[in-house]
Design a binder for these strands. Structure first.
Length: 670
DNA sequence: AGCACGCCGACT
DNA sequence: GTCGGCGTGCTC
């Protein structure tokens, strides 16, 4: 006879505690799935064992007994421990954390294993010998793996420097040591090449692929293949970090800077943090790779939290493209009001004559509108937060989405007095129309989320581009992600300003990454490519240093700014979103929390908590939303989490008419 | 969140 | 007398 503390699979926040049951089976273990009677009606519910006790912690008037143990879905102690950590870190429910680790589907009826990637041919491998640089970088990784010590590496390698080969060698070393490896990629649908290379090298029997397009049954099969121990390598998007492996020796995160590693659904976890947590248990190695590491990541590598390794030369010595920045203010002065500058137009003509392909980058349609002067490039920014102000048409005000500062938008530019004040954010969709008008004979195709909603059309468009059937491809970030095109002579970035002025402290970082990635698409064949960046603020450091391909210079500038403004990595930003049926209730809840947080802080660090404000799109699905931002100083994360946890706990007791959603270091601020 | 219990009004 | 309305409070 044992006593077990279980987390019950129930939607409610009110039942998000561990319940004690008796258990007849002495063999019961932490992590096992059990069925328990719950509530007045003793309805049978699924639950997971978090603790096994010899004696109950207290006397229970009516102790109930667990019914049976499900042997097929049981987790390990390590996983349960990670769930406890996730609950605290992301303020989610026990069961939300557990569900990350369990397969949503059920066992396939026929018991026959489906193979979701059997059509993926393993790419024939002629194993190339490593360059001296690759050898140098691999040595410490191999050593860490063979010593079985928890270490963390950041591999900073320019595009085309052979990072994937380094990953594969590290994975091979890990398998040699009898352990398993996880390979995370930002977006599985665009990374077919990586999967094929891995299957070619390691064979498909020992590889499992996890991604969102798998059916529930397929996912379940992959999950049980992994748990049974026959899988040695798991490749997948961020959720693959939850793979039920028992001896993780290595987790690789390719394109570490990508925002897709942060979940936007509950629990709002960060795959890097989860990987670190798990690897500490397993004494495994973390390997982050990127050509443009996130500023926070690079900062940590300077602090020694990550050991930095560098690959500086491109694999087959292809020269980096020639990058130039076009000042759109000059175009304006010269009377060219089109979205395409004269220089870009000429470069396009030249490329078409030479039968080279062209990619034009169009940043995600700005959902927020920033205000700028077309004559001098001045952009309206918050005096306190340094981020771009967003124009709110309904009240005709320019508003800061971080702190709520607002002002009346100027009619003439405060810097140069020009009346050409422009409200940016829309209009970029017109690029396709303009380009078709300019180059009637060329074949033009657009690739973005609108055109690729239909399944398979991404691949269709990319394939016809590869075959040379498209002359000009107009696309969003989608095109930039690690795709290899041979005949691209010219890459044009229509407006670097759109990314630069997203109201987010990371917008310079994103701009730098976007330009660098885009530039990497040009001239990967034998000829040097050309990159043209259009901007109204060409003197901006992110644009300038990206054009010069100077990562370190950018980092030095950016990290100083972050320190000065107190942004990550010098703080953690916590976003709270309050939703309710009426505006008053949402506002009331937000203001109530604001006061309570301030008093919990004991009057200190008042400047860290911003006043709540109505969310820009304040009404979604019949719910009114208010949001509030907290800038949690470095080293105070635990204290702030505890305040929020206590508040959440206290609110749980009373009947609430609102919901709170917590996001730690969100990737977008609403 | 569910779900049972309970304490009032309209009904065979 | 009883069927059922939803308000209230608890779940090991």
């Amino acid at each position: 006879m044992k006593y077990i503390n279980v987390a019950i699979d129930n939607k409610s926040e009110h039942t998000d505690t561990l319940y004690t049951y008796g258990c007849e089976d002495d063999q019961v273990q932490v992590g096992q799935k059990v069925y328990v009677p719950f509530g007045l009606g003793d309805k049978v519910r699924e639950a997971y064992v978090f603790q096994v006790l010899e004696e109950p912690e207290q006397e229970y008037k009516k102790l109930k007994f667990a019914e049976k143990i499900d042997e097929e879905v049981s987790l390990t102690e390590e996983i349960i421990d990670t769930c406890m950590w996730m609950k605290r870190r992301y303020l989610c429910k026990y069961i939300d954390a557990v569900k990350c680790f369990t397969p949503a589907g059920s066992r396939s009826k026929r018991g026959k294993e489906r193979n979701p990637y059997k059509d993926a041919e393993g790419e024939a491998q002629n194993i190339l010998s490593l360059t001296a640089e690759q050898e140098r970088v691999l040595a410490p990784i191999r050593q860490a793996i063979s010593e079985g010590r928890h270490r963390r590496f950041l591999l900073h390698g320019v595009t085309g420097s052979g990072k994937t080969e380094v990953y594969m060698r590290a994975v091979a070393k890990c398998l040699e040591e009898g352990r398993q490896a996880v390979m995370l990629v930002p977006e599985i649908s665009l990374t077919k090449q990586i999967i094929e290379r891995f299957i070619g090298r390691f064979g498909s029997d020992s590889i499992a692929v996890l991604h969102s397009r798998l059916s529930l049954g397929e996912r379940y099969d992959e999950w049980s293949r992994i748990r049974s121990g026959q899988v040695k390598i798991v490749i997948g998007a961020r959720s693959a970090v939850f793979a039920p492996l028992s001896q993780i020796g290595l987790v690789v995160l390719d394109e570490e800077h990508e925002t897709t590693y942060k979940s936007d659904m509950t629990p709002k976890y960060d795959a890097v943090e989860v990987a670190l947590k798990r690897l500490q248990h397993h004494d495994g190695v973390l390997l982050l790779g990127s050509a443009t590491p996130g500023v926070a990541t690079y900062f940590r590598s300077c602090q020694g939290i990550y050991e930095r390794l560098e690959l500086t030369s491109r694999y087959n010595q292809v020269a980096l493209p020639q990058v130039s920045v076009v000042d759109m203010r000059d175009e304006m002065k010269a009377g060219n009001r089109s979205i395409i500058s004269r220089q870009l137009y000429e470069a396009m003509e030249t490329a078409l004559e030479k039968k080279q392909q062209i990619i034009l980058f169009l940043n995600r349609r700005g959902y927020s509108t920033f205000i700028s002067c077309r004559e001098c490039g001045k952009v309206l920014k918050c005096p306190d937060c340094g981020i771009s102000l967003t124009y709110h048409k309904d009240k005709n005000r320019a508003v800061c989405h971080y702190c709520g500062y607002e002002e009346k938008p100027p009619e003439i530019c405060p810097d140069c007095g020009s009346r050409y004040i422009r409200y940016f954010g829309t209009g970029t969709e017109k690029v396709e129309e303009t380009v078709r008008g300019f180059f009637e004979k060329a074949s033009v195709e657009r690739l973005d989320l609108d055109t690729t909603k239909r399944k398979g059309s991404i691949e269709r468009i990319l394939n016809s581009f590869k075959k040379g059937k498209i002359d000009i491809l107009i696309g969003t970030q989608l095109v930039a992600k690690g795709l290899d095109f041979k005949n691209v002579g010219l890459v044009g970035i229509i407006s670097a300003d759109v990314t630069l002025n997203i109201p987010d402290f990371r917008s310079p970082e994103r701009t730098f990454q976007m330009i660098t990635q885009a530039a990497g698409r040009a001239g990967r064949g034998d000829e040097t490519g050309t990159v043209i960046i259009q901007s109204y603020t060409p003197e901006n450091y992110a644009v300038q240093l990206a054009a010069e391909q100077d990562y370190k210079g950018f980092y030095e500038t950016e990290i100083q700014l972050r320190q000065y403004m107190g942004y990550p990595p010098y703080s953690d930003l916590i976003q709270l979103v309050f939703a309710s049926k009426t505006e008053e209730k949402a506002k009331g809840a937000a203001e109530n929390w604001y006061e309570k947080i301030l008093s919990a802080l004991g009057g200190e660090e008042k400047e860290c908590v911003f006043r709540p404000q109505a969310a820009p799109m304040s009404k979604i699905k019949e719910q009114y939303r208010y949001c509030m931002l907290i800038k949690c100083p470095q080293g105070k994360r635990r204290a702030y989490s505890e305040i929020l946890e206590t508040l959440k706990e206290a609110e749980k007791i009373k009947k609430k008419d609102y919901t709170v959603n917590v996001d730690i270091n969100p990737y977008s601020f609403i």
